[in-house]
């Protein structure tokens, strides 16, 4: 996006003194605005819902109130539903913020999983080269040709049964041995089964691009002299990878982390649309959008159910994409 050459003079430095990636990023106004929007959105999603006491307890008598109506709360008193209420009289603003929390957590964690796999595969392929490299890269090619949607659906339907079975067994085992703390911990995990599966499955399908990029970068890096020096000094391959390659890859990793999060959030919303994502009563932007999409019909269109989560998700993902593009430009990652 912002490929204009930043004014070097603004930092009071000569043209012979090149800017570092961070300095270039700081000069990118769009990137800084995006970062601000992102922080604001994350803060709102994580901090606001616990504070919205009255919205959380809204009565079901006020279903489908349009934005701005006053709604009486369950525990007495009333408040204004600035963004309206949904089919069960729940406050849309509250649901969008708490749904954003789920979407962002799933997005970040799944992106982290995909980065872990992608970095590992890419580094191994690039560093070892030869047969290892061609095997791993053919694998990536084949997985690219596989329709991703199918793969994730098969994975989810395959994992759902065994995971709940495993949880039940763990719970029974803890109960039999009288480990109360462990049982409570397992009980606490039960509502998050779907979230865990989603994080794992989305991470497992989104690592391909990362692996290719990291491999390319490693191929460039390993020809450089400091790697040769480390080799001459007799350092082990693992040490070279962890100590010398990884620190030089982190701008790539950061860039693609930023660019993978929106992809994963979109994937999650797609799965929610199919009814395979986050399940009621928990919500994510995907489940809210699904509800909103159903609320647009020829009789009465409750547009706020679609527009509110749509704007929240659109703005957040837009900011992430802008920031990712800016990072890519600033660090010249290709």
């Amino acid at each position: 996006m912002s490929s204009s050459v930043p004014p070097v003079a603004a930092l009071g430095r000569g043209a012979s003194d090149p800017l570092s990636g961070w300095e270039r990023l700081k000069l990118d106004r769009l990137a800084m605005v995006s970062l601000g929007v992102l922080l604001l959105s994350a803060l709102a999603c994580f901090l606001a819902p616990p504070l919205m006491e009255s919205a959380r307890n809204a009565t079901s008598a006020f279903t489908y109130s349009p934005p701005g109506t006053a709604v009486s709360a369950l525990g007495g008193g009333s408040y204004r539903a600035w963004l309206g209420t949904d089919a069960s009289g729940r406050d849309v603003l509250y649901r969008v913020l708490s749904g954003g929390r789920v979407s962002l957590v799933v997005g970040l964690c799944a992106a982290a999983v995909s980065l872990g796999i992608g970095t590992l595969v890419g580094m191994t392929a690039g560093f070892y080269g030869g047969k290892v490299d061609s095997f791993l890269m053919r694998l990536v090619d084949v997985l690219y040709a596989n329709p991703r949607v199918l793969f994730v659906l098969i994975l989810i339907s395959a994992l759902t049964g065994p995971l709940s079975l495993a949880i039940n067994e763990a719970r029974a085992a803890a109960e039999a041995r009288g480990w109360d703390a462990a049982r409570q911990w397992v009980d606490g995990a039960i509502p998050y089964q779907r979230t865990l599966i989603l994080i794992f499955c989305l991470g497992v399908i989104e690592w391909l691009t990362m692996a290719r990029i990291v491999r390319g970068q490693v191929l460039v890096l390993k020809e450089q002299q400091f790697i040769a020096a480390a080799r001459v000094l007799g350092q082990s391959r693992r040490k070279i990878m962890v100590r010398h390659l990884l620190p030089n890859l982190w701008t790539v990793i950061l860039t693609y982390l930023t660019l993978t999060v929106p992809v994963v959030v979109l994937d999650e919303s797609f799965l929610s649309f199919l009814g395979l994502g986050i399940e009621e009563p928990a919500s994510s932007w995907g489940t809210l959008l699904k509800e909103g999409a159903g609320a647009v019909n020829p009789l009465i269109s409750r547009w706020w159910l679609l527009v509110t989560p749509g704007v929240a998700m659109g703005v957040t993902l837009l900011a992430l994409n802008f920031l990712g593009d800016a990072l890519r430009d600033a660090f010249d990652v290709r």
Binding site: M1, P262, L266, S269, F270, F273, G286, L289, K290, G292, A293, V296, S301, W303, L306, V307, G310, M313, G314, L317, L318, L320, N321, F322, D325
Partner: peptide, 18 residues
């Protein structure tokens, strides 16, 4: 273009319908 990539089709679809 970036906004279009950031929104799922089940948002743009119903909005177009609306």
């Amino acid at each position: 273009a970036l906004l279009a990539i950031s929104l799922p089709t089940f948002v743009t679809g119903p909005l177009l319908v609306l």
